[in-house]
Design a protein around this nucleic acid. Structure first.
Length: 207
DNA sequence: TGCCAGGCCCTCTTTAGGGCCTT
């Protein structure tokens, strides 16, 4: 895996489900993967400028008291944009995190050039026998030891990264491939389930 | 103030509905 194939696995905690409805990020966590290893990480709380609901406090464990002392979203997102650089990104249900990344970066007139791939869409194709494809379920399914707290940004990003790497290893073993280019995972994300085997077989035979 | 999404995927589908995922 070359430098160009290193990726940032990220996860947002937010005030709700939709930036279009006024929801904001309250925490960003991320790890950078190179050669199948975590080589860097990022985690910061950020103050959205208003009180978060008791539901979000209990869901995430992030309290209004914790956010009162946090830097504003704008300041944190500038640092995160620098962390991401030009790299591609992965998230579990990437469409969710992408919406918040887009909204928070637009608010500070920053942008990114990397592309997203989704571990949820990939797992639905590769781990078709999993009971469901929630992150916590997949962590159990691939026999990872879960010794942290879910619904905190860095921990969820770390777990997503571990599940992601096991997914790639599973593909490599089943199809005798040495590496999985990011472009192939993006194709996989959009391939109908019934065509996944054909896609991976052809990719393997093309070297 | 309070409203509260959206993309994917299946099926009893395509003139649609509902479950799964994310906070």
């Amino acid at each position: 895996m070359s430098m160009a194939d290193s990726v940032v696995v990220l996860d947002f905690e937010t005030t709700g489900l939709s930036p279009d409805m006024g929801d904001r990020a309250i925490e960003i966590g991320a790890v950078r993967l190179e050669n199948g290893e975590v080589v860097d990480h990022f985690q910061e709380l950020m103050n959205p400028g208003f009180r978060i609901s008791s539901f979000i406090e209990s869901y995430t464990g992030i309290t209004n008291a914790m956010l009162a002392g946090a830097a504003p979203c704008a300041e944190v997102m500038h640092r995160f944009a620098d962390f991401v650089g030009e790299q591609n990104m992965i998230a579990h249900n990437a469409s969710f995190d992408k919406r918040f990344l887009d909204a928070e970066l637009e608010a500070i007139s920053r942008s990114y050039v990397g592309e997203f791939s989704c571990s949820l869409l990939a797992s639905r194709r590769i781990f078709q026998d999993a009971p469901n494809h929630k992150l916590g379920t997949l962590v159990d399914y691939v026999n990872l030891s879960a010794e942290g707290t879910f619904h905190r940004a860095l921990y969820d990003a770390e777990m997503t990264a571990q599940v992601w790497m096991i997914m790639l290893s599973t593909i490599c073993e089943q199809y005798a491939m040495k590496e999985i280019p990011f472009s192939l995972v993006q194709k996989l994300n959009k391939t109908p389930k019934k065509s996944v085997h054909k896609l991976l077989s052809q990719s393997a035979s093309e070297g």
